[in-house]
Nucleic acid binder design. Sequence first.
DNA 1: CCTTTGTCCTGACTGC
DNA 2: TGCAGTCAGGACAAAG
Length: 279
Amino acid sequence: MPELPEVEVTRLGLLPVTGARIASVTVRHHGLRWPVPADLAQHLVGQHVLQLTRRAKYILAEIGDASTTRGTLLLHLGMSGRLCLLERFFPAEKHDHVDIAFEDGRVIRLRDPRRFGAVLWLSGEASQHALLAALGPEPLSADFTGDYLYQHMRTRSAAIKTTIMDGHLVVGVGNIYASESLFKTGIHPETPAQALTLAQCTRLVADIKTTLQAALAAGGSSLRDFFGADGNPGYFQQTYAVYGRTGDPCLVCQQLIQTIRLGQRSTFFCPRCQPRARS
DNA sequence: CCTTTGTCCTGACTGC
DNA sequence: TGCAGTCAGGACAAAG
C-alpha cells in the first residue's frame, strides 16, 4: 500500500535512469485504472528521461531529447503497484504489466496485481493536466501551514480524518498516515473539521509533517533494502502507533486501540489519547 | 461474502 | 435565484 513516503523512495530508486535513452516499451496488460495509451511506445522510444519528479503520489518522468521536452510520463502505483529498476532484463512474471527498457539494458518494470495503478502520457504542461491541476499543496512544503489548514477547516463539517485525506486540500495524506497523525496530535478522528482551533491545526500540520518525514527517512535510509539487488522494491518495515493495532494496548497509555469506519475507510485511534471533543 | 487501496463521479444539499 | 462548495456514497479491479 504505497503512501507518499513509499512513492518518494520509489522515485529516488528510479533516479539513476535520469539521462538514459529508451530503447523499447512493452505493455502486457493495458487494463490498469485507465487504459495504458496504445501509442505509448511512439512517444517514448528514442527519447531520454530528462527529469524524475513527484507530485502527490504521482511519479512524473519528463521525456525528451537534449533540446526539447516532448511530454511527461505519469506513473501511479495505486494500491498494489511497484516499480522495479532491473539492471538487465528478467523474464516477466504474472503481474508485470509494463516494461520500459533502456539502451544500456536496464529496465523499469511495473508490477501491479490489483491493477489500480496508472501509466499515462501527458503532452503539454504536466501541471495543467486535469489529474494534477486541482491538487492541494504538498504536505512537506512551506505552503502547508497551520493557518492554511485552519482557514480551510472553517467551512467543513465532515470528520477531520476524511478532510485531511482530501487531495484538494492537501495531497499525500493517505489512510495510514491520517490515523497516525491524528493520534500524535491527540485529536479524535470524528471531530468535525470546523471544531478545530488554530492551535490544534498548527499542531496537526506539524505532526503530519513529522510523521511523513520519519517514514521517508526510514525508507530513504533503507533504500538499498527497499530497492533490493534485483531492483525489486519491498515494503517498508514500518511499525505504526495505531494503524492495524485494533485491540492492542496504546503505546502511550495502554488503553486498547479501537477501529471505526469513516468514509468507508478503517480508522484507528486511542479513545484515551484522542478524546471526543466535548460540545 | 468480507476486506484492502486512491481517485473520480454523481446527485443532493448548504450557504452566501 | 444562481452557483460554488461540500458531502455521502458508489464505482473501479483484483485477490486474499
